[in-house]
């Protein structure tokens, strides 16, 4: 497998990651969200492996496997169980409607392309062009957290954001040191558990997972 082909495969994968980030924005069903999120993990993991292969950095394989295990299987499963147990409504409720979110998303992609332009010129890596996609994925994750009402969708947005960060790390610098990555992976896992506990807490307090309820926590004026 030549460098060139690796770069090409990587760009296809990054396009797919971007597509799945948009998929998360427009999907209306919660289980659908989980599927898309899992697929994003698959693309991310393959992309990491491809980068590892082409750059000859074997610790990236471990990252890839870790991504696969954690983001494709473990986290979606945990969330699935949570949704199932908490009997969360199967429809995503949004603050801003889908077409508008989509247009904002496109604007964010262009913006992140603009932001990364100077870096692209400095970098010599074959994967440098994917940096804009990575940044866009981060922003789209954040956008999803802002525009969705329910806590579960916000978690998925957060995880997608983390995917973007991870992708940025692999594409811009061929990955962080393994120790850091392991730490981050562990963090994510723990975060997911903490979120789970929070869900239960929020629901027992408010009888709902709608974050609107949190507004009641502020002091009355």
């Amino acid at each position: 497998m030549s460098q060139h082909l690796a770069a090409e495969i990587n760009s296809v994968l990054s396009a797919l990651i971007l597509l799945s980030a948009f998929g998360l924005l427009v999907q209306r069903r919660i289980y659908g969200l989980l599927h898309i999120f899992a697929w994003q993990g698959v693309f991310l993991s393959i992309s990491t492996a491809v980068v590892g292969y082409s750059a000859g950095l074997h610790h990236l394989y471990i990252s890839a496997i870790l991504t696969l295990a954690l983001k494709v299987f473990a986290l979606p499963y945990i969330l699935y169980v949570l949704i199932h147990k908490l009997k969360i409504k199967k429809e995503v409720e949004d603050v801003v409607n889908v077409p508008t979110t989509m247009l904002i998303g496109i604007a964010l992609v262009i913006f992140s392309y603009h932001l990364t332009a100077p870096i692209r010129e400095l970098s010599t890596l074959v994967t440098r062009s994917t940096l804009a996609v990575a940044l866009a994925t981060v922003m789209l994750g954040l956008l999803m957290m802002i525009t969705r009402k329910k806590a579960v969708t916000q978690i998925i947005g957060f995880l997608a954001l983390e995917n973007g960060l991870f992708f940025a790390a692999t594409s811009a610098t061929y990955g962080m040191p393994l120790v850091v990555e392991l730490g981050v992976a562990l963090d994510i896992l723990i975060a997911a558990f903490i979120f789970g506990i929070f869900f239960f807490q929020i629901r027992t307090t408010f009888d709902s997972l709608d974050l609107k309820e949190m507004e009641k926590l502020k002091e009355e004026d």
Partner: peptide, 19 residues
């Protein structure tokens, strides 16, 4: 059709960004 627009726009963007 919005999805179609999104896809084709992503196509255009990825031409400039990735190719």
């Amino acid at each position: 059709l919005g999805a179609a627009f999104l896809l084709s726009t992503l196509g255009m963007l990825s031409f400039f960004m990735l190719e």
